[in-house]
Design a protein around this nucleic acid. Structure first.
Length: 264
DNA sequence: AGATTCGGCGT
DNA sequence: ACGCCGAATCT
């Protein structure tokens, strides 16, 4: 009863606790059992049990029950998966419930399945004429993107970007990460050229003069120098991708020859 | 009854 | 060797 520590579990939604209990007698003395507790207090003693309870809300494929961490490398399901039949059956012939429903694209691990409606009796599907054109947005809505970080499944925060000098923000929030978010959003959501705020008046009173189809940054000019820098970055990214691919190819090849030796 | 604990089967 | 879960034991 002494050697018992309930800890927070960073890989699960807030409120979940993990506990490790050391066995203190018997043949298996010294081994340990791992338990999880839901926010409501329910106890879980295996990954299948946890998986049954959470359903599609969390993909536990790379969740390590013993350590409580996500292990992206452990994604090694049956070899050569994901090439065939992306949507159909697993070995047992059962539907794969982990992939059968789309998952809401929320930022947290607390994903919710989408409600799938297959028939709309008496309803007509309406195509939205607004779609594609401009939909209303709150002024300075980009501020809500402040502080967003990209991270991988282990929740390691990835490298943050830094912006070139010469980019200056317009509006009530002048922090760099809001500026970055604003520009990134503009690049992804608009097919029109991104020029920044070209009106001088927007700098003085952005609440009135803001051009809402442009990000919250002052007009900027791009020099040949900028373009060369960017070309270099692309070149370097391609090179490291190439290295990674050949390294992966080699690893895969040796892995396969190893298996053939075993079966021989 | 519910919680705790270790055994032991299956992989 | 280990995950998972049954069931004996404990409270």
């Amino acid at each position: 009863m002494m050697e018992r520590k309930k800890t927070d579990c960073p890989a699960l939604p807030p409120g979940w606790k993990k506990e490790e209990v050391i066995r203190k007698s018997g043949l298996s003395a010294g081994k340990s059992d791992v338990y999880y507790y839901s926010p409501s207090g329910k106890k879980f003693r295996s990954k299948p049990q946890l998986s049954r309870y959470l359903g599609n809300t969390v993909d536990l494929a790379c969740f390590d029950f013993r350590t409580g961490k996500m292990m992206p490398g452990k994604l090694q399901k049956n070899k050569q998966r994901l090439r065939h039949e992306p949507f159909s059956l697993t070995k047992g012939g059962k539907l794969d419930l982990n992939t059968t429903l789309p998952i809401r694209q929320t930022a947290s691990i607390f994903k919710q399945p989408v409600t799938k409606v297959t028939s709309h009796p008496g309803n007509k599907v309406r195509t939205d004429p607004q779609k594609g054109t401009e939909q209303p947005r709150q002024l300075f809505w980009e501020r809500r993107l402040k502080g967003l970080r990209s991270s991988d499944v282990t929740e390691e925060v990835l490298r943050t970007m830094n912006l070139p000098k010469g980019l200056q923000s317009v509006g009530p929030d002048s922090s760099d990460d809001t500026l970055l978010s604003a520009i990134a959003s503009a690049l992804h959501m608009s097919s029109a050229p991104i020029t920044g705020q070209t009106s001088v008046a927007a700098e003085k009173n952005p609440a009135i003069w803001l051009n809402t189809s442009q990000p919250l940054c002052k007009a900027f000019t791009i020099t040949d120098e900028h373009i060369r820098e960017q070309e270099l970055k692309v070149y370097q990214a391609r090179r490291s991708l190439e290295e990674a691919l050949t390294a992966d190819g080699l690893a895969r090849a040796t892995e396969n020859s190893g298996e053939q030796l075993k079966s021989a």
